[in-house]
């Protein structure tokens, strides 16, 4: 129910945008964020709820670095 999926913003028209989900282009409402074309956004129930950092590999590196830091704290 609370699943949100990342899509890439293709175009923006007022509060609506077209986003690409692995080839499926879907209309999403962007009233909760201010995305730019090319941004990755997390979409839930037709609504973009957050802009995401797009580099997944980097994200996991950061994640494990963070764990190291928490261990040292």
């Amino acid at each position: 129910m609370c699943v949100a999926l990342p899509g890439k913003i293709l175009s923006i028209d007022g509060q609506m945008a077209k986003a690409d989900f692995s080839g499926n282009v879907v209309n999403v409402n962007t009233g909760l964020i201010e995305p730019k074309v090319g941004d990755y956004v997390l979409v839930h129930a037709g609504c973009a709820i957050e802009i995401m950092a797009e580099d997944k590999a980097q994200e996991l590196i950061d994640l494990f670095n963070e764990i190291d830091e928490l261990e040292r704290a």
Binding site: M1, C2, A4, N29, G31, L32, H44, A45, G46, C47, I49
Partner: peptide, 13 residues
């Protein structure tokens, strides 16, 4: 309208 905080803002909009 069923859901938690993830969903509620889309209903509000």
């Amino acid at each position: 309208a069923v859901g938690f905080e993830t969903t509620a803002p889309s209903y509000a909009l």
